[in-house]
Design a protein around this nucleic acid. Sequence first.
DNA 1: CTGCCACTTCAAGTCAACTTGAGGTCAAGA
DNA 2: TCTTGACCTCAAGTTGACTTGAAGTGGCAG
Lengths: 139, 139
Amino acid sequence: MALFDIAEVGRRSGVPASTLRFYEEKGLIESIGRRGLRRTFDVDVFERLSLIALGRSAGFSLEEIGGMLRRDGGPEIDRAQLLMKADEIDRTIRRLRALRNGLRHAAACEAPSHAQCPTFRRLMAVAAERARKTGRRVR
Amino acid sequence: MALFDIAEVGRRSGVPASTLRFYEEKGLIESIGRRGLRRTFDVDVFERLSLIALGRSAGFSLEEIGGMLRRDGGPEIDRAQLLMKADEIDRTIRRLRALRNGLRHAAACEAPSHAQCPTFRRLMAVAAERARKTGRRVR
DNA sequence: CTGCCACTTCAAGTCAACTTGAGGTCAAGA
DNA sequence: TCTTGACCTCAAGTTGACTTGAAGTGGCAG
C-alpha cells in the first residue's frame, strides 16, 4: 500500500491540499491516478515536495524549480545554477550582516542622530550604491 | 539648494517617482512640503531610501522596515526592538549559511544523483521540516 | 499671459503563490 | 439504499510591492 490520497499527503508533508492541487496544475508534482475523482499519489511525491521546499527556501521561484525538476524525472539539477544561487545567498548574508550590525549599533549608539555616526553613514552609503546599480528586485 | 522635487530624488536615488509616492503613502519617507502641488524633499530622504533599500535587499518587508525606521513611542522600547530584530537576523544568517553550504556541496558532490547524496538529503529534510512547521514563508 | 508638460490624485492593474468559496461527485459506512 | 463528507473543479479573492492610466493642476520658459 504505497498509495496516498491528497489529505494523507497533506498530513505527512504539511502541504495543504489546495497547494498540492496547485502544484499539480503547475506540473511540479503529479498524481499517479485517480480513484473515482480522487487523486492518488505515490511515495515519490514526498521527495518531490521536499525538493520544492528546499528550492523555495533557497529563493527559487516555482517556475525555476519546475525547470529543474522537469529536466528529467530525477533531481538532476544544474550545478552551475546551484553555485549561482549559493553566491547570491552569500551576498544576501553580507547584507544581512551589515544590517544587523547597523541595528545593533543604532540601539547602542549615543550620538544625537544616526546621521552623525560614521558607522551608520558607511552602512548607508553601501546600501545606496547597491540600490542605484541594481534597481529593484530581491529574492 | 537642499530641496529636491520628486523627479530629482528619483534621478539621484534610482527609485521611480511612483515608488516614492507609494513609500510616502506608506509613511516610509516624507516630503518636507509642497511647491504648488509638487512634493519637495529634503536631503534626508536619500539616507532614508538607502535604509529602505538595505532592508529590502536583506529581505524585510516594507512593514518591518517601517517598524525599524519609525522611532515612535519610547526610545527604550525602540532599542529593544532593534536588538530583537538583530537577533532575528542572526538566526536567518545561520540558516542561510547552512543552505549555502548545502548548495555548494550539492554542486560539487560526485554522487550519481542529488537524491543519493546524504548531505543533500539532509538539506531537503530540513527544508521540508521547516515547511511543515512554519507553513508558508521564504527568506 | 499662455501653453506645455511635469507633476498631482485615485483607481485599477500586475505578478507570484496561494487560499477560499460555490456548487458538484462519489466511496464508504450505517 | 441512503447519507455523509471528503474530494473534485473552476472562478475569484488575497497579499505585498509596486506600476499604469486617466483626468486634473499649476510652475515656469517664452
